[in-house]
Amino acid sequence: MANLMEKIASNLYDGEEDEVAELVQKALDQGMDPQDVLQDGLLAGMDEVGKDFKAGDLYVPEVLIAARAMHAGMNVLRPFLAEGGGTGMGKCVVATVEGDLHDIGKNLVKMMLEGAGFEMIDLGVDAKAETFIDAVREHRPKLVGMSALLTTTMVNMKATIEALQEAGLRDSVKVMVGGAPVTAAFAAEIGADGHAPDAASAVDLARALIA
């Protein structure tokens, strides 16, 4: 039923959350493979969104609303997906580091990654190293994302990476960092696995890191 998949993808693109949920249910009722619904319906739609966002045709609010529709579809689909019931992309813990209250960029990155199928665990702002460690222990994510907007709090990214190391958790996750003052050079220097300058490239980065 290629037609139904296309409908899911295009409704997702338009951010029609109720329709997406209904269509996913319909596909399941018709006996389609949940994995196909995920790949050819939801993720295919989100891919289109990602492309047009990068091309400058879609604006941030449209992407976020499409991501919300993706969620609605996932909520229907999740119980039918194999082990864990996720998209297979895995979990990602994000937060703004200790001492820093800037969260607009972090929230954008979170919503974009969510849209790309990652299961996001948001620790909010002013997150201490211990908070990250507790969350990694509890949720076993593939990725940890840290945000800092102040030069004075960037050092806490390094401290968090060191604390993960000491807790013996560093090798279990990939760490990505971002925020206006953060550069790729700084990311390399503190031993992070990657850096992205904006939310769209954060999605590419996250995909590359878990590949």
């Binding site: 604006y59 941030v60 609010p61 607009i104 960029g105 904006d198 939310a199 769209a200």
Partner: peptide
């Protein structure tokens, strides 16, 4: 003003 194309 937020850049609606990037959020910046």
């Amino acid at each position: 003003v937020a850049d609606m194309r990037t959020g910046g």
